[in-house]
Amino acid sequence: MSALLIGDEAPDFEVDTTDGVIRFHDVIEGSWAVLFSHPKDFTPVCTTELGMTAKLKDDFDARGVKVFGVSVDPIDDHRAWIGDIQETQGVALNFPLIADPKREVATKYGMIH
């Protein structure tokens, strides 16, 4: 896929997340969405980024924005990482982490080559 441009429709997908199975277009219906990737669970920089994003929940909610993180790690790794994020960042994760071990989402969004 080429890069997404303003006005393009974001690719849809159905995937397992830390909040259960979702269909992306269904859960973002009527909202703005931020879909961001991180390269690997348990990395220090990603841990702080996810913690800071969780701390901004009220700001995202006030603007009608739903947040999703995605990486190629499996769901069990994501679930284990949530405890580490809470312990080191002092905040509970409050948005879904998408498991993409087959790199389907990453490929649809041109996140990896």
Rank of each mutant, 00 (worst) to 15 (best):
M1Y: 14
A3P: 06
G7I: 04
E9Q: 15
A10L: 12
D12M: 07
V15M: 13
V15E: 13
D16Q: 15
T18H: 04
T18K: 05
D19I: 00
D19F: 15
G20C: 05
I22V: 04
R23G: 04
F24I: 03
H25G: 08
V27N: 00
V27P: 01
I28W: 05
I28G: 05
I28L: 06
E29R: 13
S31L: 12
A33H: 07
A33Y: 03
V34R: 06
F36W: 09
F36T: 11
S37R: 12
S37F: 15
P39H: 12
K40L: 14
K40G: 08
F42P: 03
F42E: 12
T43D: 08
P44V: 05
C46K: 06
T48D: 08
E49W: 08
L50F: 14
K55G: 07
K55R: 15
L56G: 02
K57C: 07
D58R: 11
F60C: 06
D61Q: 10
A62V: 07
V65T: 10
K66R: 14
F68P: 04
G69S: 10
S71C: 01
P74C: 00
D76W: 11
D76C: 03
D77M: 12
R79L: 14
R79E: 11
A80C: 02
W81R: 03
W81L: 03
I82Y: 08
G83T: 03
I85K: 04
E87C: 04
T88Q: 15
G90F: 09
A92T: 09
L93M: 09
L97A: 00
L97I: 02
I98C: 01
D100R: 00
D100N: 01
K102N: 06
K102I: 00
A106S: 07
T107A: 13
T107M: 10
K108S: 08
K108W: 00
Y109E: 03
M111K: 03
M111V: 03
